[in-house]
Design a protein around this nucleic acid. Structure first.
Lengths: 150, 150
DNA sequence: CCTATTTCAGATGGACTGAGATAC
DNA sequence: CGTATCTCAGTCAATCTGAAATAG
């Protein structure tokens, strides 16, 4: 028999660092489950989204946009390129860089992931009203913007 | 040069599962840094808090209270027992169980961790007002309570 | 000379699984 | 018998570090 979150110590229930950590576990599980059958993970999704929104970019740029580590970018792009969802080509203007481009197949794959992840959001936030969801997003964004300036 | 969170794709900035995940990274780092010199980590802290709040408990109970996996409980309690912060004794009423007890040294150590973690909360939530912090805790708790019932 | 980009090899900590031994 | 507890061994995805090769 499982004890619900109400069974946790008061101190832990009121500790924001812990609270955020626990909600992230639930959130990550929901996102993982949503992507389960797609062959993609959160990193792949974030990279595809960045390419759709900003157009072709270098790997270093993608890392800054998504906050994914340079080294994990390499691995995720290898996967995506193998499946034909992105293409890597050398940047003639700066030969250290790869220009990464979203393919048509990649855009279609991304649309599918979008839908599945919308479902994961609803699952995570089922207990919250629309204004509550908006407020949560606002507060989390405020925290993140504050720390990204550090 | 690092791009702030404002530089992230709009879709990602508005995606709660992602947002929570990113804030959790910041939160975990703050908590880790706060505990850095203490020889304890988040698991140790959660276990000590549970023992203080509920008194002596079996390892299975501690796992339910803290949502730490049975197997990670074993490792964390090994550490704490080695340092004299908890004691394990067989439960005479049910000989499958260990009764885990907080020692005086453990309580002193816990008081130190409490203080350090208070600092980590302020660091994480620096950008939020008091009512905003309370609202964030309320919303996160609501999500967690909702999912703990699944 | 120093910095930036891509890549690889690996460390680390956390969440989790499976199985065995023991006891209810 | 089936179930619960404790323990160990080990998997897994994600975060992150260090260093090499190349190029600005």
């Amino acid at each position: 028999m499982d004890i619900a979150h109400e069974g946790a110590p008061r101190r832990l229930r009121a500790l924001p660092t812990r609270l955020v950590n626990q909600v992230a576990i639930v959130a990550d599980r929901a996102a993982e489950r949503a992507l389960e059958t797609t062959g993609s993970r959160r990193h792949h999704y974030a990279l595809l989204v960045a390419l759709r929104e900003f157009g072709p970019a270098s790997q270093a740029d993608l890392g800054r946009r998504t906050r994914i580590d340079r080294s994990d970018i390499v691995a995720a792009l290898n996967d995506l390129a193998e499946r034909g969802f992105v293409e890597r080509s050398p940047d003639p203007a700066d030969r250290r860089r790869n220009t990464v481009t979203l393919t048509a197949a990649g855009a279609r794959h991304l649309a599918e992931l979008d839908q599945r992840l919308d479902g994961a959001q609803d699952e995570l936030l089922a207990a919250l009203s629309s204004p509550e969801r908006a407020e949560l997003v606002r507060l989390l964004t405020k925290i993140l913007d504050d720390h990204a300036r550090g």
